[in-house]
Amino acid sequence: MADDPVAVKRRIGYLPEQVSLYPDLRVEELLRFVAEIKGVARRQIKDEIENKMSLTGVLGVRRRLVGELSKGFRQRLGLAQALVGDPDVLILDEPTNGLDPHQIIEIRGLIRELGRERTLILSTHILPEASLLCGRVLILNQGRIAAEGRPSDLERGLGERQEILLRVGERVSRQEGEADTGSSRRTLEEILGALPGVEWVEKTGEENRTAHYTLQTTPFEDLRAEISRRVVEAGFPLLELSTKRLSLEDIFLRLVTTEKEAASS
């Protein structure tokens, strides 16, 4: 991307969340401008424009000034300009934002059609929309991937990272003659951190001779049995082991509340 941005941009069609199009051009003129600037062959421009206008349903407003279009039509025109030139990758940011329910259904249908033939990256915070339209979902929270996978897997809660809370007692010193596995010299953090599937371990508290640990596992793994075995093996009495699941809704709520906080502050 940094080396040859123009070549990369040639393969991308982008619909921003707030689509700003030249208000002083007519719908046709705008699409012609986009087709020309994207380097569509001169002879194909007319067909290309007609094609994309009928696909997105803006044929009826082709002579209207862009600045006079309703929100719904402007969104369709935004989609049309992204589609011009048939880019390999289509990036849509909140494509149904601010549309009425009827328009939403239409745009979603269109997006599903488009996704059959090309790579389509859709950004949305409407969960049903994502599960309706997408083959693979990533949930981002504060810039980090919080969950990923097929929508059906996500809904079953498989794709999420699991947080496991541990509470252990003081280490029991070993009996004479028992095989020294070497684990007695390592801390619990080191032991658990070395387990495949564990992303991080952190000591989160200590009180009355018990210690608390939080650890996070990668998606699609249930490590609870393994973890309890390792803890006991290392000579710690396991007092409590619980999982904290981040459901889609939890993650979503977290996103929304942080957004709200950011907006109100």
Partner: peptide
């Protein structure tokens, strides 16, 4: 101001 420049940046122009 109107944000059209942002979209222009997404087109294949340097």
């Amino acid at each position: 101001r109107t944000g059209t420049l942002e979209l222009l940046y997404t087109y294949p122009v340097s």
